[in-house]
Nucleic acid binder design. Structure first.
Lengths: 317, 317
DNA sequence: TATAACATGACAGTTATTGACATGTTTTAA
DNA sequence: TTAAAACATGTCAATAACTGTCATGTTATA
C-alpha cells in the first residue's frame, strides 16, 4: 500500500477509534511501531488534532473536531457549495457561521483565477430574498446539537406572562419567515409547544437524554396538515389567463387539465376548511376562471360581487 | 520542495494554464521533462481530467470541469455544508443539484460512523420551511452562468398577452416566496423588467456579451425602494379584517394608519405600473377595504364586479 | 520530411522510507 | 519503590521510491 493511501486510511482509523496506541496502528496496518509513531506525527503536522498521553494506560487521543481525509472537488462542486452558502446570507443568526467562513476560504483558495472572479460575481447576481429580520438567535447551534443527541435542555423563555424557566425536549428547529422556531416537548405542560428561539434568553444542555418522540417533519406535517375531514369536489373552467395564474398555485397545479392553449379546467377535491380560501381565490381571478361546482361557491362569488357593487355604490356621489 | 507540495501546486498550475507542454512544467518547477511527464500522469490517476494531444502543436489540455487541490475539512466544517444544503431542500428547482449531491456524497463518505448518524438525524431536526412550490424552473443554472458572464439570452416567455421571444440581459436571479425571479434588461422595452423563471419555456445563450448595468443588490434596493415614475396617490379605508390582511403586504404595511382597532386606512403613493396589481388586490379584499382614491380604481373595481356577476349569471340555470 | 510534441523503457545515482534496536520520559498499578 | 506500558527520539543499514539522462517510439503538422 502506498504511503499516501495509508495515511488516508489512517485518518479514517483514528477518527473512528478516537483512542488507540501506536501498537494498535502498527498491528492494524502491518507496519512497525516506529513507523506508526512517525505516521501519527505526520498526521499531526497535517492538522489532524491528535494529542498523546504518555505512560501506562496512555496512548493517542483525537480531539472532537476531527478531520476528514483530503477530498478533491471539481469547480462545479465548489460552485454548488458557494451557491448553497448564498442561500444562508439572508439569515441574521446562523449556527456554524464560523465554519461556513472557513469552508468558503478553503474552497476559494483552491480556485483558479478566472473561477475566483466568477464566484465574486455570484454574489452580485444571486440572492435568496426574504424580509430581513434583525433578531439574533444565539442558541441555534446548541439546539440543533441537543435535538440530534436527544438531550434535554433547560431554557429561560420570554413569554407574554413573563420569563419562565422550563425543561424541554427539542423536536428540532425550523426557519420560517425569517424567524427560527423550536417545537419542543415541555415537561411543564406535558405536550409539545412551539418556541421562538430569539425569545430564549438563557440555555443549558443537561446531560439527560430522552427517547425521540417524532421527527420534525412529522411534527410539521401534523402542525400544518389539519387533516382534511370533509372533502369537497370542485370543478372550475379556466381561460388562458386563468390557466397561467393557477399554474403558480401549488395546490392547484397538479390538477390542471389543459384542453387547448386557450382553455382548460381544474378538477380536484379540497377540504371543507379551505372552502373560504378557495372561493376567495377564484373570486379574485375574476372572469379568468368560472367555477362550475360546487354551486354554493358560485353563489358565494356572485354574492360577494354584489356586495362589492353595493359597497362601492353606497360610496358614490 | 516536497513531491506532495509540488503536485499540489501543479494542480493549480494546470488549472490556470489549461494548455501547456511538459517542457513548460519542467521549466516552471525546475524538474526534468521526464519527471514532468511522470507527474502529469500521476495527476491523471488522481482524477484531474487532463488529456494530451500528441504531435507538433500538441501538449496537455485540461477539461473544463477542473479539479481543486485536495482539501481537508474537519467535521464541523462538513456539518456546516450539510446545514447549508438543508436550506436548499425546499426548492423544487435548483441549479447545481447534481453537484450538491456529489459534494454530499464525498463529504459523507469521509465521516466517522457516529458522525454519519448525526448527519442522518440533521434531516429530522432541521427544516427551512416555506410554502412548497411545485413549479419547475429548468433554466436556473444557465441564467446564473449567463448573468455572471454578462451574456445576452434569447428567451421565450409566457405572459398575459401570449408567448413572446425576447433578447434580454440578465441582471441576476433571486428566490422569493418559492419562485425564482430574473430581472433582466429587455431590448424590446429598453428597460429592466422582471421575469418569473418558471414562465420561461425556452432559452438560448447567445455569444454576445453586454456591459454590466448594475449588480442585483442595487436593482433589488431600487426595486423595493419604489421610486415611482408616475406616482399615483391612493387612499383606502380598511375594516378590521382589511387591516389584518394589509399588514402582511410588505408594500402596504408601512403606510397603514390604524384609527382604532376596528378601522383604519392606507394612504400612500404607488407607481402607475403597479396600478393593475394594486387595483386587483383591493378588489380581492372585497368589503374589507374601500378604495376612495383614485376614482378610476373604484370604477375599475366596480366594473370588474359587474363583469363577474355577468360572467356567472350567463352561466346560470 | 523535419519538427515538436507526447509515450515509454532502461539504468544508475540520489533521496526517502522503513524496521530494528537503543535509550529516554511519563504515568499508573502492584 | 519498582515494574510495566505507553510515548519520544535517535541511529543506522536495508530497502524502496524517485529522478535525471539517454534512447527509442509514435503522432500530427508545417
Amino acid at each position: 500500500m502506498s504511503k499516501a493511501k495509508l495515511l488516508f486510511d489512517l485518518i479514517l482509523y483514528v477518527n473512528t477509534k478516537r483512542i488507540f496506541t501506536a501498537q494498535d496502528v502498527a498491528h492494524e496496518f502491518g507496519i512497525s511501531v516506529r513507523t506508526a509513531h512517525r505516521y501519527l506525527a505526520e498526521l499531526g503536522d497535517m492538522g489532524v488534532p491528535i494529542y498523546t498521553e504518555p505512560g501506562r494506560g496512555g496512548g493517542y487521543r483525537v480531539l472532537n473536531n476531527r478531520m476528514l481525509p483530503p477530498i478533491m472537488f471539481d469547480e462545479e462542486e465548489a460552485f454548488a457549495v458557494f451557491f448553497a452558502f448564498q442561500a444562508l446570507k439572508y439569515y441574521q443568526s446562523l449556527p456554524f457561521d464560523i465554519h461556513i467562513g472557513s469552508v468558503f476560504a478553503k474552497l476559494y483558495a483552491g480556485l483558479a483565477h478566472d473561477m475566483k472572479r466568477k464566484v465574486d460575481r455570484l454574489d452580485s447576481v444571486l440572492t435568496f430574498w426574504n424580509q430581513k429580520r434583525s433578531v439574533a438567535s444565539p442558541y441555534l447551534k446548541e439546539i440543533i446539537e441537543a435535538a440530534i443527541a436527544h438531550e434535554l435542555l433547560s431554557i429561560e423563555y420570554v413569554s407574554k406572562s413573563g420569563n419562565t424557566v422550563r425543561k424541554v425536549a427539542p423536536v428540532g428547529i425550523y426557519a420560517y419567515d425569517g424567524f427560527w422556531y423550536m417545537p419542543a416537548f415541555d415537561e411543564l405542560y406535558g405536550q409539545i409547544r412551539l418556541f421562538r428561539t430569539d425569545r430564549i434568553v438563557w440555555m443549558e444542555r443537561t446531560q439527560q437524554t430522552f427517547t425521540q418522540q417524532m421527527p420534525l417533519s412529522d411534527w410539521l406535517d401534523r402542525y400544518t396538515a389539519q387533516t382534511p375531514k370533509k372533502p369537497v369536489r370542485i370543478y372550475v373552467e379556466l381561460t388562458r389567463e386563468g390557466l397561467r395564474q393557477c399554474r403558480s398555485q401549488p395546490w392547484l397545479e397538479p390538477h390542471i387539465v389543459m384542453v387547448h392553449p386557450e382553455q382548460g379546467y381544474v378538477e380536484t377535491v379540497i377540504d371543507q376548511e379551505d372552502w373560504d380560501y378557495v372561493s376567495d381565490y377564484f373570486f379574485q381571478l375574476g372572469t379568468a376562471a368560472k367555477v362550475i361546482e360546487p354551486r354554493e361557491m358560485v353563489d358565494r362569488i356572485r354574492k360577494q360581487a354584489q356586495e362589492l357593487i353595493h359597497h362601492y355604490a353606497s360610496d358614490g356621489t
